[in-house]
């Protein structure tokens, strides 16, 4: 009974809480279990995979795939470095573009805000299609075989603009900007010294979204880098290994003996899982850094009341 009294007023009943907990635990398990399986497979020996398939309890363990991965040397480390480089530079650049663009849109005294809102929003509804995009990016803008070819196409994201614009509108009061102006602050000073600190949670959210987008991108590198090892990110290396195997399996009937021969040269399942682990760990480590801002961002609305 005493316990019952300590419960907060907004607490739900015990059975409901138990239900919610079970649902949440199940949901977390759904997210985590596959990853645990991936880690286990990456330590499983090749024979065990052939005999037993993917299993949480393999017949035999092995470090062979990790050894092989680290012996890949240049290709692996170069792509690892590329992933970091693209993610860091890309995130900084895209957050800057996003903040500048959406801050302008959030200002009611900006004359063309409706036009520019629609201008970016329109691209969310209608894309140019793959071939025209390719022609513009590669032939017209000359973006290929360089880091810029991977960073620039992802730099402008209308969805983030709209999220950020709304965030500026709701969390930065107009009075604050007016007060700054009265105190003699210029536009850039107001933006960087006054608005940005207030909008930190929103910027952190956008930064995380962009970082994940850059880290996970493999399609754009595939189109514009075309296996140029110097600039290729880790995700592309991983996806192309996976796609090689899929392609050969799919075309086995058409290619006959040739496919089986080529199959010998492709990566093993355990090796691909090693790369998955290598690709997931760094970005998983990024979450704690951003987490407190995101939580703050989620609760900020209610604080304002």
């Amino acid at each position: 009974m005493a316990k019952e009294k300590k419960r907060r007023i907004n607490a739900v009943s015990v059975p409901t809480e138990i239900l919610i907990h079970i649902a949440m635990i199940l949901f977390c398990a759904l997210c985590i279990v596959p990853f645990i399986l991936v880690i286990i497979i990456s330590f499983t020996s090749g024979e065990s995979i052939t005999e037993k398939g993917y299993s949480f309890f393999p017949n035999s363990w092995s470090l062979e795939s990790y050894k092989y991965a680290f012996e890949m040397g240049y290709v692996l480390w170069r792509s690892y470095f590329n992933s970091f480089f693209i993610t860091v530079v890309g995130t900084v650049a895209s957050v800057l573009v996003c903040a500048l663009y959406s801050y302008s849109l959030s200002r009611k005294d900006f004359k063309y805000r409706n036009f520019f809102t629609f201008f970016s929003f329109f691209t969310m509804l209608f894309g140019g299609g793959l071939v025209p995009t390719f022609v513009v990016t590669k032939q017209l803008l000359g973006l290929h075989d360089s880091y810029a070819a991977v960073i620039i196409p992802l730099m402008v994201n209308p969805f983030n603009f709209i999220v950020m614009r709304t965030f500026f509108q709701t969390s930065v009061p107009d009075e604050l900007i007016e007060a700054a102006a009265i105190d003699g602050s210029g536009e850039y000073n107001t933006l960087f010294k006054i608005v940005f600190p207030v909008a930190k949670p929103g910027i952190a959210t956008i930064a995380l979204l962009n970082a994940i987008a850059y880290w996970n991108e493999w399609f754009i590198p595939m189109l514009y880098l075309r296996n140029d090892v110097k600039h290729m990110p880790l995700q592309h290396l991983l996806v192309s290994m996976q796609r090689d195997v899929e392609f050969l399996a799919k075309n086995a009937a058409m290619m006959g003996a040739e496919a089986s021969k080529a199959m010998q040269g492709t990566s093993t399942q355990a090796l691909r899982m090693v790369l998955v682990v290598l690709a997931v760990v760094p970005i998983a480590c990024a979450y704690p850094f951003f987490q407190r801002y995101i939580v703050a961002g989620l609760t900020i609305g209610s604080v304002k009341g």
């Binding site: 595939m222 189109l223 996806v239 796609r243």
Partner: peptide, 19 residues
């Protein structure tokens, strides 16, 4: 341009269609 098994189909057709 060293096309791989998995990438060739997409990359090559796009390059042809994109001139």
């Amino acid at each position: 341009i060293w096309g791989t098994w998995g990438d060739f189909d997409e990359g090559a057709t796009l390059a042809i269609n994109g001139g």
